[in-house]
Design a protein around this nucleic acid. Structure first.
Lengths: 200, 200, 200, 200
DNA sequence: GATGAATGAGTGTTCATTCAT
DNA sequence: GATGAATGAACACTCATTCAT
């Protein structure tokens, strides 16, 4: 009895349109009306699924974080040789900035919400917890095999994340135009330096 | 020179109230009406001085960047001993995150505008150009005195900025609570490591 | 007779929830969605049973008037002594205000609809026709027995209703706080005075 | 400096249009948009003057109560002869119902708000306090001159108000059509009866 | 220099209702 | 009998802005 629920599909559809509108019009420019128009649907339908706009924003954050955390890292366990595997990690990590699955303007807009919404902050923390854990695991793996020399894998992971996010942040406002590949190479070298000689 | 015009003072007053409202209500929440209310002044007065809200935003960016760039670095030239002087630089730099003169939520909101407004992007680039130059100068100074070993001072400065901005970014979403002093110490050590042995 | 249909039960259930919502949120605040939420049921179900909201309102009026007219008077015929019986009538009548079975805010909201909906007005007239008849009958009964002296029983009944409804109306906006019992006693005395000496 | 304030005129204008719309469309039907349309003015202008709709409603209540309380009674002090003066009072009082300056549907709608808004309730109480005082004064005046015989003038005034309001209430739902003059005559007689022989 | 009147587009949200399932 | 999808009009209210004074 009742009609077949297409809630989760519709929600997903709404969220991805929300995401697109943010890219085109900015976060504050993304109104329910505009999203609905783009979907060729009545605005109240969005309310029907998310009750409030805040709910929609939270849904978007979840969507983004889900996407981000599932796609950021490939499966490194396929590579057996520890040295090769560590190089894979470095490659992926140093290229996060321009392979970012989520549009940077959207991502930073969401990050900004962190300061005013503890629920969103919590979700971001969860995201980075996962990232740190994955990274720390790979550090330990490489360290045990003697590829790198690291005392504290968590601390090493935090250093990596900070450097990468900082590089990403900086590249958009850097006065020096630069090839993405070159910047990635630099980042890799810096990481290699720091994670050698048991410095961390 | 000469004394500031009344108009310029009024503008300054408006901008600082704008700034406060952003802190309390977020960037999107900072409407002309709210700022005017807080100033106990008529909304049209703000328009009178800035013509449009976009103009006001641009004014705010200038205000923020001006504040930021003039207050971020003290005058290092007072310290003669190169080693001491470099330590001063490291101290200041590693503590940027929590000594940030501009509220972080406001700063990141402005940074986000960078993606949609090339004028704002240009100003951010100018800001970082100045920062990079100052830093590169200090790197060179310390390098010449043998305190550190660096080949490319610009590249070194960019590394420092990236790490610091990244650390600042990360600390708000880090799953691990941590003393600001400890984090600063870590950052300093990492910089020392990287800027030794002519690695950069 | 026979057992009530399920539909009729459901309707009753909806109406009583409607009634409750009006008490809590006011007449204008009582939307289909809120009623449905309170019933933990889908809004379209209410439409399914009443077709339109106007229909629901009409149903509520019927429900209220039905309740009101069946419960307002007990069966006076049990008391044989005319003097006692008249006292019973006076007791009941003078206490209508605070024994009102229907919440006063709801009742007055419905009364107000009278001005804009002739169908609702008709039902109110029917309600008062019944009340007047009952009262006139009792007046006549008491009058014949010499307990009171009245020429026109209908007119007497109308006077009673007017005084009682007016007292009820007034008590909510009276600047003088007053015991309900005292007000009832006053009302009774006034009625006794007026319905003596063949004045009406 | 600044523009000439026409706030009080505009507010009055808005209120009287509000009043008209209520008469035509009912209280719940009187939306800001409809009032604005009738005034041929932008809806936000109404908000400009009253900030919220609640504020507008409160303004309307004040307007109605002000109108009501200043126009309900003429100046009786012109008539010297106590007997004539008392007759004047009775005439006015018994005709309140159909000389009501304020439309009854609007008045009852406002009365209904009394149950959900204590501020409005307070204003109604103030209104009736004034009415009671005026009436009690006249009762005392007539009583001292021997025109009527009354012990408690306040109680007498409350009786009069209750009867009149009740008669007004009842006439709209009475099953018996009746000439307004006849009903007024009845009311007068009833009051005369009750306020004689020191019964109250 | 500053105010207040006024606008018009836009906000998120609620409303009663329809219809397919 | 009941649900959930979907609509479209309406709601109160906020927005940046213009203009007369």
């Amino acid at each position: 009895m009742g009609r077949k629920s297409k809630a989760s599909l519709r929600k997903q559809e709404i969220l991805s349109h929300f995401y697109e509108v943010i890219i085109e019009e900015g976060f504050e420019g993304a109104s329910i009306a505009k999203i609905a128009k783009r979907m060729d649907v009545n605005p109240s339908l969005l309310i029907h699924y998310f009750a409030t706009k805040d709910g929609m924003v939270l849904g978007l954050i979840d969507y983004i974080i889900e996407t981000y955390s599932t796609q950021i890292f490939p499966d490194f366990s396929g590579t057996q040789d520890p040295s090769e595997r560590w190089e894979d990690v470095l490659d992926v990590v140093s290229r996060i900035q321009w392979s970012r699955i989520i549009d940077n303007s959207v991502f930073y807009s969401c990050y900004t919400l962190t300061f005013r919404n503890i629920e969103i902050k919590r979700r971001f923390k969860d995201l980075y917890k996962g990232i740190i854990n994955t990274l720390a695991y790979e550090v330990e793996y490489a360290s045990k095999a003697g590829v790198i020399e690291v005392k504290n894998s968590i601390q090493a992971a935090e250093f990596m994340i900070s450097l990468i996010e900082g590089t990403n942040y900086y590249q958009y406002v850097s006065p020096f135009g630069m090839e993405a590949d070159d910047r990635a190479e630099r980042t890799k070298n810096t990481i290699r330096t720091v994670l050698s000689g048991n410095r961390i």
